[in-house]
Simulated scan of single mutants.
Amino acid sequence: MGDDSEYTEITYRVADRIATVALNRPQARNGYTVRMADELAAALDRADADEEVRVVVLTGEGKDFCVGADLSQGGFDFDAETGPGPEWQEPAGRCSKRIFAMDKPVIAAIHGAAIGGGITITLSADYRLAATDARFGFVFTRRGIYPEGASAWYLPRLVGLGRAVDWMVSGRVFGAEEAHTAGLVHSLHEPGELLDAAYALAAELVASTAPVSVAVTRQLLYRMSGMDSPLPVHELDSKLIGSITSNPDAVEGVLSFLQKRPPEFRLRAGADQPDFLPWRQEN
């Protein structure tokens, strides 16, 4: 199990190779703060570095997932008179950017309100599961502020430009059914069954998928699907497929299928990805 002692606004625990990261300011409806942003990034770092962790479930304590920024807690971490420095990063992006870079899949389990930063931090997650009582809003224009968390990049890719424009320009709040129909969330569940569904999905990924294959595949999708041509994608695919002759997970995947048994993949997501992947050079 994980140790929560180093966190004040989230909780972190590990069981069955699944890390659960939960926003933990229920008295403030999980209002998002700079401290919470940094604790989320640290917890995601921790989960990514732990080879025993295969999947992360991101959720919230209390009745709401997150009602967005809580500026009553002191605002941003820069001097209001001098403004932010060139290296400053807005808080929602500190979380969504870290999820984007993960080697492990992230499942967001969303209930109650997911407003502003409360939804933008989840847009880079691999799955968003929602309770039927969930409601969503990219409410920035109604507050005189701007979309964050790189949501103007993620949202049109998830739901199409037309729907993204509607939601972001109007800033209106909408329900779980509309979110599901548009593709913002993958599935809907009764509130009492939401976490069980998230853990069932996580357990399936743990039992059935290869850690390195998952890590490479999610980065291929995020980093290569926006290319102007398929040719650079095919070039990288060719290197990847050419490497499987020395990949023990590929052998195990075939053998386990032929022998009708669960696979036992050995390669580690953090240490055993191919060195030639272009994004590996960033680290």
Rank of each mutant, 00 (worst) to 15 (best):
Y154M: 05
Y154C: 06
Y154D: 10
Y154V: 09
L155Q: 08
L158V: 08
L158Q: 14
L158F: 06
R163H: 07
V165Y: 10
D166P: 03
W167F: 13
S170M: 10
R172N: 13
V173G: 01
G175K: 06
E177F: 12
E177Q: 15
E178P: 07
A179T: 03
A179Q: 07
H180C: 14
H180D: 06
L184P: 02
S187I: 00
S187T: 07
L188M: 04
H189Q: 11
E190W: 01
E190V: 00
G192A: 06
E193G: 09
L194S: 02
L195W: 05
L195T: 10
L195Y: 06
A197Q: 04
A198M: 05
Y199I: 00
Y199V: 01
Y199Q: 08
A200T: 13
L201Q: 10
L205P: 06
V206W: 01
S208T: 14
S208D: 14
T209G: 02
T217I: 08
L220A: 04
R223I: 01
R223Q: 10
G226E: 09
D228S: 14
D228N: 13
S229L: 03
P230G: 01
P230Q: 03
P232T: 03
P232I: 06
H234C: 12
E235P: 00
K239S: 08
S243R: 05
S243Q: 07
I244G: 00
T245Q: 11
S246G: 12
N247V: 05
A250D: 08
V251W: 09
G253K: 02
V254W: 11
F257M: 09
F257A: 11
Q259T: 00
K260I: 05
P262K: 11
P263F: 00
E264I: 07
E264W: 00
R268H: 11
G270Q: 12
G270P: 06
P274H: 01
P274R: 06
D275R: 13
R280Y: 01
Q281S: 15
